[in-house]
Write a protein that binds this DNA or RNA. Structure first.
Lengths: 184, 184
DNA sequence: TGCTAGTGTTGGCGACACCAACGTTGGTGG
DNA sequence: CCACCAACGTTGGTGTCGCCAACACTAGCA
């Protein structure tokens, strides 16, 4: 468990004499307590990732969740909105609006399930598949820009560690308040 | 790239005999495209981190940014609100409201800088230092819970990789739209 | 037949990052 | 001296995001 306690603080001098904000010296401008907190690093990194994602996807007139939903439909096949939300980690409420967008764009089709009239069957259209291929390129470029300062081994290691942490908390807390996959 | 078609209700990875959503089988329920995207992993992980932070800090009647601001004041000494925001990555607008909260709680004091009447000098109070020590414990427990599935070496490696990525994008885009440190 | 549970939809809430404007103040160059 | 620009703090607003509450509808079961 964590043994490190409160680091040395109380530098009440207030004289910040550093002048060069070079890449290495940049981290020094952050409070040491925060620099060592993985949660803080993850949050701040996620902000940058979110900004990069937003820029790249809006540049092609799309959104982040478009890619997530289309990818899920392509890999797992047609799903209900609830399953879609469980797989991608979205709330059912939000999935409804997201699917509306995708339907209006012609990337998916919404049809009532004849076997279970509660459900909507969401299916990806050929146009949606073409769009997904386009977004695959966007995502690949995004990945490369996001992980730019890391080499191949480090990128794989970061993904591995993040996956471990994410799986752990997903198992504990659930993805979208419903840990059970369908298996209906 | 992938044209993997899958039937609707099928758990295609049926080879594993696991019946429950164990840690390893859980990731298989996410779209493969998303599983490999570092940005997606970071964002989802940040959501869990954010939830853990919120739970832990509200449990003691505090907030996440309380810790960040108090830590900055303790380590760098009294600062203006603008410097405070730059160090912790907050917008000046939000810092104003945050400082209001801390002032009302008695953890910091706000005084006009006699040398520069534009600035407010924010200083941590003894009560604020005591509160910071309390929050240090909360943060340490948080770190341990967040990184639970990782051993010491992996934790250090994850922090190192995240720091590299974060520094890179901070240098490129700036932390809070103002890459220049004081250098007044 | 009732009851429970899952589904889709609407609406709202709170946190967060970010931006725009305004009045105030410091510093600088004409 | 005065005009101009830059920085500061404050208010208010915007958009995203995750999440919850309620409702009507339907399926499955005792």
């Amino acid at each position: 468990m964590g043994e490190s306690r409160a680091p040395a603080g109380g530098a009440t001098t207030g004289t910040t004499d550093d002048a060069g904000p070079t890449a290495e010296g940049l981290a020094a401008s952050w409070p040491a307590r925060l620099r060592g907190l993985a949660g803080w690093l993850v949050n701040k990194t996620a902000v940058h990732s979110h900004r990069l994602n937003a820029e790249a996807f809006t540049a092609v007139g799309s959104r982040r969740f478009h890619y997530a939903l289309l990818a899920s439909l392509d890999e797992f096949g047609s799903s209900s909105q609830a399953d879609l939300g469980r797989r991608c980690g979205y709330d059912r409420s939000d999935v409804a609006a997201m699917v509306n967008e995708l339907v209006q764009a012609g990337h998916v089709e919404r049809a009532q399930d004849p076997a279970d009239r509660r459900r909507n069957i969401i299916a990806i259209t050929p146009a949606g598949r073409a769009w997904l291929a386009r977004l695959d390129v966007v995502a690949a470029d995004l990945q490369d820009a996001f992980l730019a300062p890391l080499d191949a081994r480090e990128r794989a290691e970061l993904i591995r560690l993040l996956t471990r942490v994410l799986e752990h908390h997903t198992a504990l807390h659930g993805f979208a308040r419903d840990p059970n996959p369908s298996t209906h």
